[in-house]
Design a binder for these strands. Structure first.
Lengths: 210, 210, 210, 210
DNA sequence: AATGAATGAGAGTTCATTCAT
DNA sequence: GATGAATGAACTCTCATTCAT
């Protein structure tokens, strides 16, 4: 009981520091975030930080690592199994995007860290890059599967299309959640579902499609 | 004569410093780039840097400012004036993208600074953000003009579509020029024109179009 | 019973900490030895250390104090009482050195702390210095007694000779037990008795004597 | 001219820092010596230290390195070339010790660093150990040469005798120059020459010799 | 007796910036 | 124009020590 309670408190501390660090890394960037800021926000002493994390770099890596897992889990659910109509495809894609945007909405600092460029040091840049690559790869597998099932023409360059889709997602999330948008664009006030619907439509039909 | 010569030398010096700074800002990020690195690369003394630039922030801002002008000039040439067929539109778009990718290819460090996230300080982030917004706005005007001319349905959300197009461009350039791509994607070996063609096709017809 | 048992356990704990601290002080030096290292080695919590010892300095002082007593006891047994031949003197000296080197062999960490320099803080340096002085003084008394007994010429500088003898001992122990020796010197494989014999011979006859 | 002057000033600064660091390392030990102490003593800013030296460890290593060269130079001059009488040997040895003690007298902080134990970090301990080994090796060569020339019996353990001589030297210097002596020993007031004579006598004739 | 999370003073180091020459 | 030594504020990280439980 008591041990459980303590462990919980302990983890709470750790989580507080983690959350504070995530928010500041996302908003101010890695370098502008000082350990002193983080501990001040949490209300502990400077040394306490180092009880829970080995270094500034280590906490950033931890954040990225945990974030990556969550992110990939969201995407993993969208893997295509059997053939269907174009409508099916668009709906499936829309559903995936919807989940993704919902996750982004409730993890905006994480998203900012991943898609905001962030300005970090090499090891972290690398970890973020790998995560984005893993996401893109998930989309690539989906496209390949769709080609196998005859739902998409075999002539398209699957890798390139995956890159384009990933680009759309990164762009939409950036503009939706963290002020990368044009002044009166109204994107900030859209719902995850609206974004998912419009993005999926563009994904399949381009500018000319309905 | 002599004065001219000197002025020229001076400007050469200034340019060398500017180029070196640009390359390092792009490759290593703003914070990881030390003044001492820049001057060592150029082969001048530390103090010399401050003869040409007020501060580290100032040179970064200068780089962004000059880059913005060049970038907007490239896009400005693509403004749509009169109606045409869908084919015309696709070709016009492809031409614009081709010009843009060509520019990107010969200014990759600048591109990396603009689209790589870079990890900088507020004022520079802001300047970069404004440039990207200006680019996106140029695309927005093009779409609106196309709607006015009846070439695109009036029902589409122009701002959002502009954002998607800008996202495509950012994503393509990032993957093409600075290692953001999947391992075997082959995107790095494409030409500007190939990228322009494929991107324009996706822009108009989406995944399903030819 | 239970109280005794507990007291015993307690003392065992205390001793474990003491031993661990001694070893690390000797091997790594005072500053490089962290309390966290010591407790980790013993397998107790950080706070436990402070139940048994007031501070890091206190435990070091304790170690030095206990070591000094043992060391002086070993030497005290060698005090010269009555006259004899030169042979007697050499044998007596050899016997003393033998005892000393045997003690050193089974207390090498202690020796390292005392003769290895160790790199400590003032109070501990002082305590170690006093111990070495006490040892040297014991040798001095022996020399004086030998002069009184007419076994050594009255013209020699007793203090200086005592210093030289002490130097020999310190040097021999350092090279024998803790790697201060030349690569192939073979000193490490000698026995305490061999060392005692050779050192005593040098002590009395110098380089030229048999 | 001006450049020379500047270079000189520059080297003066460097030397000041070096001297200050040497003195403090010797007196207080490596760990107790703070960069802030050194620069305060020299009267420069904290950052200035790092203009001249890469780190605290680097300056200590530099000190040891420079000291080693000087020390070995002093000893190198004592290499035995041709046979002679025992008197010659004693005189030669005395002359070498005289030079060594004179050097020690005018470089007492350096000596303290080398022979005082000092309490430093591994790399510096290692460098000091190597220097002491090099010294001892020089004495070993001298003894071997003397054996070859028939001046010393071939039966003696040359390595061990070299170790004993080195021990004498270390002990004498320690007691003479930095308070390792007994209270009223009077060693501190001896001259280098007196020490050399007495030490050489002991070295050759032991306690019993004249 | 024992725990281990929390503390905080203080250390070494970095680096943009200045300024006398 | 150019130099480069000098500055010092600011940062990350260490670790002996404390204390509520």
């Amino acid at each position: 009981m008591s041990a459980d309670k303590e462990a919980q408190i302990s983890n709470e501390r750790r989580d507080q520091i983690l959350q504070s660090a995530l928010r500041r890394f996302a908003k101010d960037g890695y370098h502008a975030t000082k350990i002193s800021d983080i501990v001040a926000e949490v209300g502990v002493a400077q040394g306490t930080f180092y009880w829970y994390f080995k270094s500034k770099e280590a906490i950033a890596l931890e954040i990225v690592k945990e974030g990556r897992e969550q992110l990939l889990e969201v995407i993993a659910q969208g893997y295509r199994r059997k053939a269907g109509t174009v409508q099916d495809m668009v709906h499936a894609s829309e559903a995936l995007l919807d989940r993704l945007f919902q996750f982004a909405e409730s993890n905006r600092y994480l998203m900012e860290l991943f898609f905001g460029g962030g300005g970090t040091i090499e090891p972290i840049r690398k970890a973020i890059g790998e995560t984005r690559a893993a996401m893109e790869n998930a989309f690539l597998q989906n496209i390949r599967r769709a080609i196998e099932l005859g739902m998409l023409p075999a002539t398209i360059d699957a890798e390139f299309r995956a890159a384009l889709i990933m680009s759309l997602i990164e762009g939409v999330i950036s503009r939706w959640l963290f002020g990368f948008a044009l002044p009166d664009s109204g994107i900030a006030s859209k719902t995850a579902q609206e974004l998912a619907a419009e993005t999926a439509r563009f994904e399949f039909f381009g500018l000319l499609g309905v």
